[in-house]
Design a protein around this nucleic acid. Structure first.
Lengths: 191, 191
DNA sequence: ACTATAGCGGAGGGCTGCCTCCGGTACTAG
DNA sequence: CTAGTACCGGAGGCAGCCCTCCGCTATAGT
């Protein structure tokens, strides 16, 4: 799960060579994932090191800045999300877009830090946003050309709408799905 | 603007008697409003005191806990928002609901702290949520009875959807309005 | 087995924020 | 004007976080 060496979105921190070092590296990554999800962007680095059962020095050696750690945790996942866009490509236009967005919300809903950062203008997240656009725009265009999305809607509108929904704190998964569908129905052409 | 003594939502901190003390009290409130909007719930209290040109002791005397300050800043405003629900009551059902929600988004969009807290389960914000429900539900019901809102939508869905949109970070006010309208269109009955 | 070295970890200095406490200030009533 | 007191403000103790530095340890190649 964490040992995937894929060069996510071009921003990378190199994984150490020695086996013990790799174990620590992975433990840090997974501790950070937890902490960021729980406390958002500002999670304590010392706490992350503690969770990982590792000295604070080890954290800093692997990830010199908070941003490095943050990027390592999330960019890979965003990458996967983008990849999911091609997996839905064989569905009908509307269903494909819907499925992808649903997956996006599902993913982001539990990641407080992602939500905080999504609207920020940090370097790495500009990349992430761009990637999301590159992945989603074709789905959107296809649906629009097929006439199942009103012509006055922009993909940017949709993405931001869905980003917002992501942080809305629903009572359960079911409501989340329901509301997303409600909102997406607003995209259909009015008769 | 800040000298309104209305007992907002029942949670209150009493405003001091002496004129100089009242000046400080108001200065704190307005500094806090700024700071909370800017840095969210975790804004530094010492910074707020500084902005208000007041000693930290004065802040703590007036607002013993962060929550007290927070409540004093926001509950009054929420109260106003609820009051706005009756002001739109003479519009047609759909337009009334739309206008009220639009106003809600407009208000909350600039208040980072509100967004953070809206989904929390803090005591005071349960009150606020309840008040919002009491204010908005009638608008919603009326629209639903008038047949301009699909029957499978719940008011809770709508409120959460709109809460979410509130934190979506749009490029400009125009986009915010547009997206909200898009999302709300999803509430209309499908032909 | 042995050694060179990649990697470890936590002590420590600096910083910021929280909150209390109390000597001093300045308003207001008379 | 004066006295009583409501109110001020910041020094100071505590806590948590950031980040660096360096003596020690465990690994990997021979």
């Amino acid at each position: 799960m964490t040992e995937n060496p894929r060069p996510a979105l071009g921003v990378a921190v190199k994984r150490p060579q020695r086996t013990d070092a790799r174990r620590n590296f992975d433990a840090l990554l997974s501790a950070a994932r937890e902490a960021f999800a729980e406390h958002g962007t500002g999670a304590s680095l010392e706490d992350i090191a503690r969770r990982a059962g590792v000295g604070i020095g080890t954290l800093y050696r692997n990830f010199p800045t908070r941003q490095d750690l943050f990027d390592s945790v999330y960019l890979g996942e965003i990458d996967e999300l983008c990849a999911a866009a091609v997996q839905v490509a064989d569905l009908p236009p509307w269903e494909a877009l819907e499925a992808w967005l649903q997956r996006f919300v599902e993913y982001a809903a539990t990641k407080r830090a992602i939500r905080e950062e999504l609207n920020s203008d940090s370097e790495a997240f500009r990349l992430a946003r761009d990637a999301m656009y590159a992945a989603g725009q074709p789905l959107f265009d296809r649906a629009q050309e097929a006439g199942v999305i009103r012509t006055d809607a922009l993909f940017d509108d949709v993405l931001r709408m869905v980003s917002g929904l992501t942080g809305a704190g629903f009572v359960d998964e079911e409501q989340r799905t329901r509301v997303l569908q409600l909102a997406l129905d607003g995209l259909r052409p009015r008769p």
